[in-house]
Simulated assay, not measured.
Amino acid sequence: MSLYILVRFSFAGRVTAGRRNYLARSKEKRIGYLRGKTSDGAVAVVSVSKVGRDFRIGCGIKDHLCHPSVRDIEGVRREALLVFDVRDAIYQSI
């Protein structure tokens, strides 16, 4: 006996397989950089990406998904200050 699974794509981006609903993943798009200084005075570059409605920031080899309440670049700057200790950050779009 073989098992057939019907997979449908709806307009909301949900993938339906049998009775389960899964959200389709959004592509990550790099939107710019934050350039600032760390607490010891070194220059830091933080990459800013948009994943669906959320923001993802990265500095060096570290990566961080921002809190869902972050919805604009000012929120991303605050998050970079809290996570990577990057001060006086200036945003540069791509």
Rank of each mutant, 00 (worst) to 15 (best):
S2G: 05
S2F: 08
S2V: 03
I5A: 06
R8C: 01
R8H: 10
F11Y: 11
F11D: 13
F11G: 09
G13A: 08
G13N: 10
R14Q: 07
V15P: 00
T16R: 14
T16W: 07
A17C: 02
G18K: 04
R19Y: 02
N21D: 08
N21F: 11
N21P: 01
Y22M: 05
L23S: 08
L23F: 08
L23E: 09
A24K: 14
R25D: 00
S26P: 03
S26D: 11
K27L: 02
R30H: 08
R30M: 08
I31H: 11
I31C: 05
G32M: 06
G32W: 06
Y33R: 15
L34M: 11
R35Y: 12
G36F: 02
K37Y: 05
T38I: 10
T38G: 15
S39M: 13
S39I: 10
D40M: 09
D40I: 05
D40P: 01
G41P: 02
A42Y: 08
A44N: 05
A44D: 02
V46T: 12
S47K: 14
S47N: 09
V48A: 04
V48E: 04
V48K: 12
S49P: 00
S49R: 15
S49M: 07
V51H: 13
V51A: 09
G52I: 03
G52Q: 13
R53M: 03
R53C: 01
D54F: 08
F55Y: 15
R56M: 12
I57F: 14
C59M: 15
C59H: 15
G60N: 10
I61R: 15
I61G: 07
D63H: 12
H64M: 10
L65H: 13
H67D: 15
H67I: 04
P68F: 08
P68D: 06
S69G: 11
S69N: 13
V70T: 12
R71P: 00
R71S: 04
D72F: 09
D72R: 14
G75K: 13
V76K: 13
R77Y: 00
L81N: 06
L82I: 05
V83D: 04
V83I: 11
V83H: 11
F84V: 03
D85M: 08
D85A: 08
V86S: 04
R87P: 00
R87Q: 14
D88P: 01
D88Q: 14
S93I: 02
S93W: 05
S93K: 15
S93H: 12
